[in-house]
Design a protein around this nucleic acid. Structure first.
Lengths: 245, 245
DNA sequence: TGTCCACGTTGACGCAGATCAAAGCCCGAG
DNA sequence: CTCGGGCTTTGATCTGCGTCAACGTGGACA
């Protein structure tokens, strides 16, 4: 069917950045039409990753960052004793691999949670292009900075929130990101297991499951397996702002 | 005594990057002598921040990043209800303010924990210089990437470690950073309160205090107020690798 | 179409760390 | 030198979430 790595050199490639419907979410935000055309040359390779497969592993040599074209990923870090911390879930238009720049090795694992396709962005090339295209350079810096800010949000989750607050924040965050991609804000399928949600939120899977049940009892959401419908966005938000104890 | 903002335009500034004893830890790592000289022009402003004062606050317009010349800072994020998450402690040679690039506003607070001095690096200038100096561009990317990796480490702390593991990891991390700056790996003064340590580690101050006492009973460290002496580095490391339960 | 198995739910119970409370200590201001 | 307030320590008790256990469920595959 598909080769796992495709080299695309056709001049008018249908899915290059300039034609990509994710270009307003992804790396090329704010570039002129002319600059976008230059990006098409930078991002000229794709890679398919089937569900369960690694895009990269901790320790792999760092050579490129990846823009998700379709699909869904998790990133995680493992402790020697096997404990896992999921550091994030990534969806279309988001960038993977920034962790590898500092040490020239990837420092976490990236695993596809559904069959996915990514655009390969060789990092040396990106640095070269961004020396010429100021808007690209600046936007890349924004992407990295936002990753740092996102991480601070996760620290907040893990450091000070109670279990139900964490799950509410998680659902609202997913909802908002699906919305930005043109999907329903209130109805979606989770791509990850309860265990993975728990690892991300610093909770055990049983606690995640109980919190889902509680939200359902309280009429905030409906849950059927991985299908979630949010019935009361305001109610979820209130959970976050209401401090008890 | 000192103006809070000093403009330095003297040609042979004693403390510019090329003469700075932190240049191997800070932004200029890996630059040639020639390139270093160019940096002196970029980093031409200092700012003193007295203990307890903010370097910036969440919401402030983002204009510059800061390299710590002397002193010690914490960064934190506040929830509406007043809960605080300390996102990091920064010491000489480390960079503050990267959180602001993405939104053009700072997204956390940076507070001096002792009288400090920072080098002001106007961000637009940094981007301009790094278009000319590839090594600067690349090193700046590494700095940002390492911040992301550091944040993943904190998530690991908060997500999967028990209280004593967290404190051991914290002490070992401080020890290693002091070492890199030429200070003793085993003896140092904490600049932050038990409450601030707790906020960073996702623990209450009483738990931090008890863990210190426990380590002392076990002969791993001595504690006198803020003065810490590490007696058994290997013992602390063992706490981290030993999984129980 | 039945079987299997990873995933999910729910209940009972235990414990790490939070909370509440009371003292002690150190340092800076007067 | 004394006083006061912020920080720290320690003890007693409480509780949210983890742990352990049993059962339910739906999708993949033969």
């Amino acid at each position: 069917m598909h080769a796992h790595v495709m080299h695309l050199s056709l001049p008018a490639l249908r899915e290059a950045c300039s034609q990509c419907n994710l270009r307003e979410l992804c790396l090329p935000v704010g570039l002129s039409a002319n600059e976008l055309g230059q990006l098409d040359a930078l991002v000229n390779q794709r890679r398919r990753v089937v569900r369960g497969q690694h895009l990269y592993r901790g320790g792999d040599a760092f050579e490129a960052i990846y823009a998700i074209k379709t699909g869904f990923f998790k990133t995680d870090v493992l402790l020697e004793d096997g404990r896992e911390q999921v550091t994030g879930f990534q969806m279309a238009g988001e960038i993977l691999g920034l962790d590898g720049i500092g040490s020239e090795k990837h420092t976490c694992n990236a695993v596809a949670l559904e069959d996915s396709e990514v655009c390969v962005i060789p990092f040396a090339d990106l640095e070269n292009y961004s020396r010429e295209i100021g808007a690209l350079q600046h936007h890349f810096h924004k992407v990295m900075s936002r990753e740092i800010v996102r991480d601070h949000g996760v620290m907040m989750l893990l450091g000070v929130m109670r279990a139900e607050e964490r799950l509410a924040a998680f659902l609202l965050n997913l909802s908002q990101r699906f919305t930005a991609r043109g999907y329903s804000p209130t109805e979606f399928n989770l791509r990850m297991t309860r265990n993975e949600i728990g690892s991300y939120l610093g909770l055990k899977l049983e606690t995640v499951s109980r919190a889902f049940s509680r939200f359902q009892e309280d009429g905030l959401i409906t849950v059927h397996q991985k299908h979630i419908q949010i019935l009361d966005v305001a109610g979820l938000k209130k959970l976050l702002s209401e401090r008890r104890a």
